[in-house]
Amino acid sequence: MIHIIHKRATPEQMQQMLEVLGIYIKLAVDIQRGILAGGGELHSDCEQVLLEDGSEQAHIWGADWYPLQQKVGYESLINLRPSVGNRSMEIQDSAVREQINRIVQNLLGGV
């Protein structure tokens, strides 16, 4: 189940987002709005939910959340953006990575 998370996730939301992959959650993070969508099979599924909610594609990045380690992963096909200098699936810009880490930790960390 994909959830859009605007404020700290509840344990129930975390459990539902973990149902798809079990040990981690695929995310799409809107760094402009400070929100995320998580729980789909693909990062693009989460990205689509954010787009339908009013996010702009340019502000959405793919990431993963590993709750047992409380760690963010920064690799996704939706991160391939040669036009903005991101030529790999992993987010290269450290400022973007820091924004994503802050948002994910605030919304999912410790839950």
Rank of each mutant, 00 (worst) to 15 (best):
R33T: 11
A37N: 00
H43F: 05
Q32K: 14
D53A: 13
L36H: 02
Q16H: 11
L107E: 02
L50H: 08
A9S: 12
A58S: 13
G34Q: 04
I100D: 12
G62F: 05
M17E: 03
L51P: 04
I4F: 00
H6N: 13
Q70W: 11
P11Q: 04
I2N: 01
E41T: 14
L108E: 08
G62E: 08
L108V: 06
P11M: 04
L18I: 06
R97T: 02
I4S: 00
K7P: 06
N86V: 06
G39I: 01
K26V: 07
R8K: 15
L36S: 01
T10M: 07
A37T: 00
V20C: 15
G40W: 04
I5Y: 00
Q48F: 11
E90S: 12
G73R: 14
G109P: 03
P67Y: 10
S76M: 07
Q57C: 10
E47W: 10
E41Q: 15
M1P: 13
Q48Y: 12
I91Q: 08
E90Q: 10
S88G: 13
A28H: 04
W65S: 05
E19D: 13
Y24I: 03
P67S: 12
M89L: 15
K26L: 11
L51G: 04
Q57V: 13
E47I: 09
L21C: 11
S76P: 11
S88C: 10
K26N: 13
H43M: 05
A63P: 02
S76D: 10
E90I: 08
R8P: 02
S94C: 08
R97P: 04
I91M: 09
V111T: 15
A58F: 09
H6G: 05
H3Y: 07
H43W: 03
V20E: 15
R102V: 11
Q13C: 10
V72E: 08
I103D: 02
G110V: 11
L36M: 00
V72D: 08
N79F: 00
D45P: 06
G85V: 09
I25P: 09
H43T: 04
R102L: 11
R97G: 04
A63I: 02
P82S: 05
L42E: 10
V29P: 01
A9D: 07
Y74A: 04
Q15L: 15
Y74I: 04
I91H: 06
W65V: 05
D30T: 03
S76K: 07
L108I: 07
A95C: 09
V72L: 06
G38L: 00
E75D: 13
D45G: 09
V72R: 07
K7W: 07
L80Y: 13
L107C: 01
L36F: 01
V49W: 05
R97K: 13
W61R: 12
H59D: 13
H3D: 01
L108N: 08
A9M: 05
V96K: 10
